[in-house]
Design a protein around this nucleic acid. Structure first.
Length: 239
DNA sequence: TCAGATGATTCGAT
DNA sequence: ATCGAATCATCTGA
């Protein structure tokens, strides 16, 4: 078959990426979410599925390559959420691609997801309100940012993804209270995260399925749409 | 033209 | 039926 393929819009890619990195702990959009994404990106559900399939695989295969991207989208979403939450100070994006790359995280550990080690910090993701979901989302994102920016993840770089039971809160503490001046892009966010953790201390007796890294999280598929969606989508320039 | 990125297809496993 | 993985085919930038 003629595989006539066409790159998606930049906007579509943005939307997809934002969803992906906002749901890194469970990048498996439901049908509903897929439809929603499809609409926003002006692509079919099948294409959304393809995109996520490819993204998952390629992300896992080469996390180092996606670190910057992950940080970017994660930070963006985080800032967005934080701003919407209460803080309304500077909405100045880092816009510095050297955030994590120059900080010294030069190790290309493509063995496993380091950030995966901390996933069900607050098992009670379902507070019963959309606000809860939102918070969950940002916490998730921030967690990711932290683990990514913190180059000292070596300590737990082990294949935690295959041993989800070995998660300790102490690890989290270490993360959030990192003494080293980690070049985090979203310091205040980290602080907020810290608070989250402090406040939330639920027992994570979850028995995740070794799905290969991503276990199923009870995250209500909520499509974050920071960017405009319906109507403004425009097919990529004439090719 | 080449290499990397990316979307689509295929195949095996669950 | 869906996902992961491998692969193919095309696109894009150098």
């Amino acid at each position: 078959m003629l595989r006539k393929r066409r790159n998606f819009n930049k906007q579509a890619t943005e939307i997809l990426n934002e969803y992906f990195y906002s749901h890194l702990s469970n990048p498996y959009p439901s049908e509903e979410a897929k439809e929603e994404l499809g609409k926003k990106c002006a692509i079919t559900v099948a294409q959304v599925s393809n995109w996520f399939g490819n993204k998952r695989i390629r992300y896992k295969k080469n996390i180092g390559k996606f670190q910057e991207e992950a940080n970017m989208y994660a930070a963006r979403t985080a800032v967005n959420a934080t701003n919407a939450s209460s803080h309304g100070s500077q909405a100045n994006s880092p816009s510095t691609p050297n955030s994590a790359g120059s900080a010294g995280s030069f190790n290309m550990s493509n063995s496993g997801d380091l950030f995966m080690s901390v996933q069900s910090l607050n098992g009670d993701s379902y507070q019963g309100a959309q606000v809860g979901a939102n918070v969950q989302s940002q916490v998730d994102t921030l967690r990711h940012v932290i683990s990514q920016t913190g180059g000292y993840s070596e300590g737990l770089t082990a294949n935690q993804m295959y041993s989800p039971q070995g998660i300790n809160h102490s690890l989290l503490r270490s993360y959030t209270t990192s003494p080293s001046g980690l070049p985090c892009i979203v310091p205040h966010c980290v602080a907020a995260l810290s608070n989250e953790y402090e406040s939330n201390t639920p027992p994570p007796p979850f028995s995740s399925q070794a799905n290969g890294g991503w276990q199923d999280a009870p995250t209500p598929s909520s499509v974050t749409s920071p960017t405009e969606g319906p109507g403004s989508v425009h097919s990529d320039t004439s090719n």
